[in-house]
Amino acid sequence: MDFFMDFFGSIGAFFSGVASDFYQTMIKDGRWLLVAEGLWTTIYIAVCAVLIGTVIGCLLALCKISKSRFLRGIANVYTTIIRGIPLATQLMIFYFVIFAPMGMDRHLVAIIGCGINSGAYVTEIFRAGIQGVDIGQTEAGRSLGLSRLQTMWRIVIPQAVKTALPTYTSEFIALIKETSVLSFIAVMDLNKAGDMIRNATYNAWMPLLSIAAIYLLLTFGLTKLFAILERRLARSDRG
């Protein structure tokens, strides 16, 4: 009997300890506001960056499959350089060397930096998607009298999008996680918010685990959301 009392007593103590830790680190002094702010920063930077990355990716993917050696060269140099350098290093170069001396805001540099980085990966995703569409589709379109552009836009791209979507969405999710290096240029993203709570409370595990849980919820939720989208798009493939 005593054993059980001790056992449940210690479990109770553990949970009340967790609760008080949670209160101390996340609730007291409105620290959750810091987390909310960090989460918002992470999301809007990731979303803006993925928009920029998508635009860059579209253009460069078209460059990569174009007949012009010059355009292909540009696209290849871009993807080689950007994919060969870690995001943190790139961000610091973009900020400290290139954009800050021009008087650009850190958040904007973060968006542009992540966008340029993501663009290189999206380029490869789109290129693979376009080249994955059977050449016969292009031939069928062209032999009906459609122009190269019409064939690309109405026949190849819709199919490429469908095959590229799963890798494209996982790139977006990867980007959300990668924004955690934004603290290198003093942008207060979700990860940095956790750092700041750690610095204020000197409690390491509660802020870290809380931040981890938020990242997980975010990425898991998006994965599920995109899976639904993919299923919708896959409708015509049933049979």
Binding site: Y95, F96, A100, P101, G103, R106, S183, F184, I185, A186, M188, K192, D195, M196
Partner: peptide, 18 residues
Amino acid sequence: IASFKSGMDAALDLKNGG
């Protein structure tokens, strides 16, 4: 507040006008 990894990064940002 802009919270950098090192004092030197903060000083660099000061020079750059950030």
